[in-house]
């Protein structure tokens, strides 16, 4: 990893997008859970100081005592602030502070926390806040890899393009002249029916504009909202297309080959049509 050049093998992955509301936190929760399900010790850090959400998506909001900023300010130890996930072994959450703002994050503070986490964890997922300002820059600064979450619409694609530029110019890897951050495109809220009608950009449109490798396409699914409200990462819902698509994305992140699915308009069966489903 990129912190101090020692031999720890923790991989820091930032989940970022520029634009808000595209599914960064949902994706961080799903992918973090997916990696942990594969037996890798994983921690998800909520960098959205002041707008804490990850704990809700992960269903651990009632167990938050200390947070990321407390650890940075040395008001609590890392082990006091880390919340162990109840469902998934090997998964931990480091919640954001709700009462502070992004100025509480400092390069040195974040570096200290990441270095300590790198001793124990294989994967560190940084859930970035929206925007391109300090919070987002802190979340991506130490990253080895980036998952750029994009919706198939022009403003989201434009913002993702902007954040890709920042990844390659303002990250530690860029400043040190090291190998650039690996980039992965995660297309979320994809609606094949609307793409067919020309109301939404297609996968190839987005790939053409952003020109980075595609990690996965998550179809628009009611299961995502349901999962958020229940505080269960959607990847655990193996009956939903979104959950399966996230699992495929995690497999690809681990270097496995998985064909893309859920990109075609579902043909309704005779009985479904009869029932008007």
């Amino acid at each position: 990893m990129s912190l101090s050049g020692d031999t720890t093998l923790a991989k820091i992955i930032v989940v970022t997008s520029g634009k808000g509301g595209v599914g960064k936190t949902t994706s961080s929760a799903a992918i973090g859970t997916g990696i942990a399900l594969k037996g890798h010790k994983t921690v998800i850090i909520d960098f959205d100081v002041g707008l804490r959400n990850l704990d809700l998506i992960m269903g651990c909001e009632r167990r938050v005592v200390y947070d990321f900023v407390n650890v940075i300010n040395k008001e609590a130890t890392l082990s006091q602030a880390l919340i162990k996930d109840k469902r998934t072994k090997d998964l931990f959450i480091l919640p954001a502070s709700q009462t502070r703002d992004k100025d509480a994050l400092t390069i040195e503070g974040v570096q200290g926390v990441l270095e300590e986490l790198a001793k124990d964890f294989e994967y560190i997922i940084c859930d970035s806040p929206a925007g391109i300002e300090k919070g987002a820059q802190m979340a991506l600064y130490f990253a080895d890899a980036a998952i750029v979450v994009t919706n198939p619409e022009v403003s989201s694609v434009r913002d993702s393009d902007r954040i890709l530029g920042i990844l390659q110019s303002k990250s530690k890897r860029a400043e040190d002249g090291k190998e650039p951050i690996e980039e992965h495109l995660l297309l979320t809220r994809y609606h094949p029916g609307r793409v067919a009608l020309g109301e939404m950009l297609s996968v190839s449109d987005v790939e053409d504009i952003l020109a980075i490798p595609l990690l996965g396409v998550i179809p628009e699914s009611e299961a995502v909202l349901k999962a958020s409200n229940q505080g269960t990462p959607v990847i655990l819902d193996t009956d939903s297309e979104a959950g399966l698509a996230y699992m495929d994305a995690v497999d690809r992140l681990m270097g496995e080959e998985r064909p893309l699915r859920f990109l075609e308009v579902q043909k309704k069966g005779f009985i479904k049509r009869l029932l008007g489903g």
């Binding site: 391109i132 434009r158 913002d159 393009d161 902007r162 890709l164 530029g165 920042i166 390659q168 110019s169 650039p180 020109a211």
Partner: peptide, 8 residues
């Protein structure tokens, strides 16, 4: 050699 991204 790299892409020039939005805002650059």
């Amino acid at each position: 050699t790299k892409p020039i991204r939005s805002g650059q």
